[in-house]
């Protein structure tokens, strides 16, 4: 759905996801207004901003999860590794397999713990039971859940704690080997211990996966992110490396936001 006249995103070799001139409106409400930003490959980019500034909408535009919303219109261009996300003939299922997502609250499938992860493994053509089992174990170990669940893989994930459920969702998201991982305030419903675990995991994904991380928690952004993208009322205020953003914000509004003053 590219609009003629919008600038093509710069063919920056280090950018995995390039957004240019992205406007999203739902009915008559304009949620995003001409957003341009780049998400560096293998880096963690924190998207911050006050409630209602369009962080989640931006995130959900990247994997086209907003497609089904009635009255939704998207303009501008998003490129994933140089290929248009909204381009004609784009296979949405294929797109979503390249882009994993973690939500505000854990949402494991009402299937067994094993099956939650195995479903992703099967997407990759693993059908033999031993192969799937091996992959499930590998992923559960990677998120640090194996020791807690290895003796109850067949039981319900809903008996797990919220943090464990979110880790399971992380294993599920990683099972399809995504190039990009979208995190929509994944720790907002979790206890400090699980939050630390998730943050640790995000750190371990660096270099391998491009992470776009929506958070309300500025400390968390400072801890986990390489870059910060600050949105305000549907527009980009500033995109900068994390150190620069927090120590030498280029925009007055960024400074006000960091200091907790009204922006």
């Amino acid at each position: 759905m590219s609009l003629t006249g919008t600038p093509r995103p710069a063919a920056d070799a280090a950018v995995a996801v390039a957004v240019s001139g992205l406007s999203v409106r739902i009915a008559s409400r304009e949620i995003l207004r001409g957003i341009s930003a780049g998400f560096a490959r293998g880096r963690v980019t924190a998207v911050i901003g006050p409630t209602g500034c369009g962080k989640t909408t931006l995130l959900r535009s990247l994997n086209r999860l907003n497609d089904q919303r009635p009255g939704m219109r998207v303009e501008g261009e998003i490129l994933l590794e140089g290929q248009s996300v909204y381009g004609r003939g784009r296979d949405v299922r294929d797109l979503r397999r390249r882009i994993g997502m973690l939500f505000q609250r854990p949402n494991p499938f009402p299937q067994s713990i094993r099956e939650n992860v195995a479903l992703g493994a099967r997407v990759h053509g693993l059908w033999r039971r031993e192969e799937v089992d091996r992959r499930v174990e590998e992923l559960l170990r990677r998120v640090g859940l194996w020791d807690a669940v290895h003796d109850r893989l067949g039981s319900s994930p809903f008996a797990l704690s919220g943090g464990q459920q979110q880790l399971l969702c992380m294993a599920r998201a990683l099972a399809v080997d995504p190039q990009v991982l979208l995190l929509d305030e994944p720790t907002s419903a979790l206890d400090p211990h699980s939050t630390a675990r998730i943050e640790e995991l995000i750190g371990s994904l660096r270099e391998r996966i491009t992470v776009v991380f929506v958070t309300h928690n500025l400390q968390q952004a400072a801890r986990c992110a390489d870059e910060v993208l600050f949105l305000l009322a549907g527009e980009v205020v500033e995109q900068a490396p994390v150190g620069d953003f927090f120590q030498r914000p280029a925009d007055l509004r960024s400074r006000a936001y960091i200091e907790g003053k009204p922006v």
């Binding site: 299922r93 979503r96 994993g100 997502m101 939500f103 609250r105 009402p110 479903l119 399809v176």
Partner: peptide
């Protein structure tokens, strides 16, 4: 939220219905 988890994983509506 439960259905979106499946959609975000690239499942079809049919698969979402079956799995979730």
């Amino acid at each position: 939220l439960a259905k979106e988890g499946a959609l975000a994983l690239g499942m079809t509506r049919y698969e979402t219905a079956r799995v979730v």
